[in-house]
Simulated scan of single mutants.
Amino acid sequence: MKLSKLTGSRKGRVALAVIPVTIAASVLLGGVAQGAVPVSFAISGSEFKIGADKLEGVGFSQYAGVATASDGTEHPAAIANIEDAKLYNLCQSVVEETPLGKVGILISAGTGKEPAKATDLQIGMSDLSGTAIFKNIRIGVDASTVNTAKQGDSGDFAMDSDSIDIDGLQQVSWSTQAAVFQLTDLSLKITDGTECF
């Protein structure tokens, strides 16, 4: 299985594009914060970090996949699907080297009583850490038969569970997409390289 291709960007253009990107992202995420628009986004050729104090998910599966950049470079990825997710104190960061030094985007949400919420969440990740609890887990099932709407290729190793809870989530990802991403208490900042962890 291949993730949708990640779009390309040249590092030298980041500094020039930072203002338009911020405006576009603010408009899009403003709508997302109201639960008004579907979301599908990926970071081109760069991994980004996602952190949360706690993730609570219902309907979970995971199997192997590939994230393909616009230049054709393929990156092995673990594909995780969560049908309904709540993320408490969510943080997402991406940093690029530019002629002006490091430039980053730092997004936070779900910092108050209401968590950030995602429906049909799919993540292509290279690293994950935290303390996890799975309910009714199955390990070693065929990826084409996992108990989520999105499935992997026949014959591939996979796992699934009715639910997943992760405390102290730290994740390095190539892509994240969701049918709807509701970002309560949204904050987006341009930084000099600050990351979630």
Rank of each mutant, 00 (worst) to 15 (best):
G8Q: 09
V103L: 14
A116W: 02
A80H: 09
F134N: 05
Q34I: 07
I107M: 11
A143E: 01
V141W: 01
S187Y: 05
D167F: 05
I123K: 00
A64E: 15
T191P: 10
E74D: 09
D185M: 05
D71M: 06
D165S: 14
L106V: 08
V94D: 08
A67T: 08
A36F: 11
Q92K: 11
K86L: 08
A132N: 11
G112E: 09
L100A: 14
I137W: 00
G152T: 00
L128R: 07
S40L: 00
C196V: 01
I107V: 14
T184N: 15
D71N: 15
D127C: 04
F181Q: 11
G72R: 05
V27D: 08
S4L: 06
I190L: 12
A15P: 03
I43V: 15
L169D: 06
K189V: 11
A80Y: 09
G8A: 12
Q151V: 14
I105Y: 12
P115R: 04
N136R: 07
K135S: 12
A80C: 10
L188N: 03
L6F: 03
T68H: 06
S93E: 07
V27C: 04
L55C: 02
G168M: 06
L128Q: 11
C196K: 01
G57P: 03
A118Q: 04
K150M: 06
K113N: 13
S46V: 08
D120T: 00
S144G: 01
D127S: 14
D167E: 15
A67L: 01
L100T: 09
V21Y: 06
K113Q: 13
